[in-house]
Structures are given as structure tokens and as C-alpha cells.
């Protein structure tokens, strides 16, 4: 159970960062709560992809390759949809990443 929570949080963070790294999306937040610069955007993208790789490694190490990948894909689906919903209806939620 704890492992799932760790995987969930890390993947959510990864998708949140990747989402903000897309320039078109960034505009939405900068209008409302502070702005992001280009350097930040690059950092977010690298960090996001890095987190994706880390979580794959984490899941396969914890549950074995086949079950680990099932957990990873399942959690990725769930967290990415959560990011979409939050980004549509509560974009301010992501402003905590502003300070990074």
C-alpha cells in the first residue's frame, strides 16, 4: 500500500511537471498566478522525464517486471487523468510548482 502511494505521488508530480513544461499550457497559469520562464520550462521537462524513468525503475524493482509495469501503466493512467481534471478546473493547484 505504501509503495502504491509513493508511485502515485511521484507519477503525479512527473505528469504535473510535464504538463507545465508545455508552453501552450504554461500561459494559463502565468495569467493567474505568477509566471514561468523558459529555463524553468526546460528544467520541468527534464525533471518530468527523469521522474518517469525513475518510477519505471522503482515499480519494476518492487513488483518484478511484469507486475511492476502493470502498476506503472495503471497509476500513470490514473494520475495523468487527474492532472487533466485539475488543470481544467483548478489550475491554481499547480502554482506550488512555481517556487521550484
Amino acid at each position: 500500500m505504501k509503495l502504491i502511494v509513493v508511485l502515485f505521488v511521484l507519477l503525479f508530480l512527473a505528469f504535473a511537471l510535464l504538463n507545465l513544461s508545455l508552453s501552450r499550457h504554461r500561459v494559463k497559469l502565468s495569467n493567474r498566478a505568477g509566471s514561468f520562464d523558459v529555463g524553468q520550462q526546460g528544467r520541468f521537462r527534464i525533471l518530468g522525464y527523469l521522474l518517469l524513468f525513475i518510477t519505471v525503475a522503482f515499480a519494476t524493482a518492487m513488483w518484478g517486471v511484469s507486475l511492476g509495469l502493470v502498476y506503472w501503466f495503471a497509476t500513470a493512467t490514473l494520475t495523468s487523468i487527474l492532472v487533466v481534471l485539475l488543470w481544467t478546473y483548478k489550475p491554481k493547484f499547480f502554482s506550488f510548482l512555481n517556487r521550484c
Binding site: 510535464l18 504538463n19 501552450r24 488543470w87
Partner: peptide, 9 residues
């Protein structure tokens, strides 16, 4: 990829 998280309500 660009519209991966896009939902314009």
C-alpha cells in the same frame, strides 16, 4: 504530445 493534457471545456 502537445495536447497530451489538453481539455478545453
Amino acid at each position: 504530445f502537445v495536447e497530451f493534457f489538453t481539455f478545453r471545456a
